[in-house]
Write a protein that binds this DNA or RNA. Structure first.
Lengths: 233, 233
DNA sequence: CAGGTAAATATGTCTGGTCATAATCTCAAT
DNA sequence: ATTGAGATTATGACCAGACATATTTACCTG
């Protein structure tokens, strides 16, 4: 009898991962079936399945019923970005946070935003401009359009205590959304907010979110000069 | 007796998801244990476990042995970004792709990059500057440092046929990496490459990757003016 | 040869168990 | 009151077997 090893699905996953990485199985090649692998590792098929499923989720292998499992030709590299609440992000770095409302009104959705917001031009929205500060230094300039009909209780909020950013996350849960990252040159307004020369390059994140019923909010967050948004692979 | 429904783990996941979304279970609340849920849904504990595990991976619930499962207070919103190979990205849009090597030499790692690259200053690296074109229009300017010792066969590659980007993905699989997004103002060199005025705002992605042994490559990809990097939540 | 049908098969899911592990709770001894 | 040992318990992992489902392959027919 051989020694009783702990054959966890993690060990199997790592071994399979090794074979893929070290090209024991070439990209595009068909790898042994679950039953065969289960025999090799001396475990149940379920356990091998778990390991293979994880690898498939990571995109390293491609699985199809009856056709079997293949090593992906060029595995898509995925990165996960966790979107923080600005206040928590700042405070997590041990800095102080505050925000100020620069502007707030009710208006009809401008025509040029209809596309990004998926709402007809002229829908009534709340328009807010907020400045977020880290250690009393300008951090993020937030320009936001929020769909009145989609968020009950929006009229009563003045966002003095809690920022729109944070209030919406807690009170208007969204089920989907999309983001875009890009660079802009500072307008005079923005330059004044960040105390830089007009024309400086600023990093901007535009985010629109929606729930099952309707679009909720479209926010454009422009970051202070020199800001770097980090993520790991 | 109720009708015999197909109680797949997906249906259970969706029902649990609904209860979390619609606050049937408040954020922070302890939800019923697996055994209890299995009884409710009339299925095996394994099936409930699968559903709960998926929700936990998505960050909606938090699970701890013995302590049970709780609804996350503020679920981290995660976005997954798939990093494309530039050529495939361009061709997927039905555009034509080509690239050109602007520069290539062997040099010692500049001091200011030691931090980002995690290699001692003075390590021998390959320095390449590549321009990527979409429909013959400048698309991405790529400046790259590659660690000679970490990539066998690097000397022989001139990257004329296949870009460094693509060749490295296929020949130097990495196990980890990190990225940073930021805005820069165009230097004279970059302005010339993109045919814009110096000082224009450009969107840049900096990416460094490594494997188990050592850092592999550090790339700075500067995108054409107006470029928007999109991702969905 | 084209087109349709049936058999074969690898993955996907589910069951009803067992055992493992980590946290928490209880309670007695200090 | 504090600490530490042990019981308790919810999740985590695993197994052997069954059925479900998507595809491919083989075969059969017009």
């Amino acid at each position: 009898m051989t020694s009783r090893e702990t054959t966890s699905w993690l060990q199997i996953r790592d071994e399979l991962l090794r074979r893929v990485r070290e090209r024991v199985w070439e990209p595009g090649a068909l790898i042994p079936g679950e039953v065969e692998l289960a025999e090799e590792f001396g475990c149940a098929r379920t356990t091998v399945n778990r390991a293979l499923r994880e690898l498939a989720e990571a995109g390293l292998i491609t699985r199809r019923r009856r056709a079997g499992t293949r090593v992906s030709i060029n595995p898509p590299h995925k990165a996960t970005l966790t979107i923080p609440i600005i206040r928590e992000d700042v405070e997590a770095r041990g800095a102080s946070y505050r925000h100020a409302i620069l502007h707030r009104d009710t208006r009809l959705l401008p025509a040029h935003l209809g596309g990004a917001f998926h709402l007809p031009e002229g829908t009534q929205v709340l328009y807010t401009v907020t400045m977020h500060y880290e250690n009393d230094r300008p951090y993020i300039h937030e320009e936001r359009y929020t769909h009145f009909a989609a968020v009950p209780g929006l009229e009563e909020q003045d966002f003095a205590q809690i920022s729109a950013n944070e209030w919406l996350v807690q009170n208007a849960p969204f089920t989907g959304g999309d983001m875009a990252f890009f660079a802009i040159t500072a307008t005079e307004d923005l330059a004044r907010c960040f105390d830089v020369a007009p024309g400086a390059a600023l990093f901007t994140v535009e985010r629109s979110t929606w729930n099952d019923q309707a679009p909720i909010t479209l926010a454009r967050m422009t970051h202070a000069p020199g800001y770097r948004m980090r993520m790991s692979l």
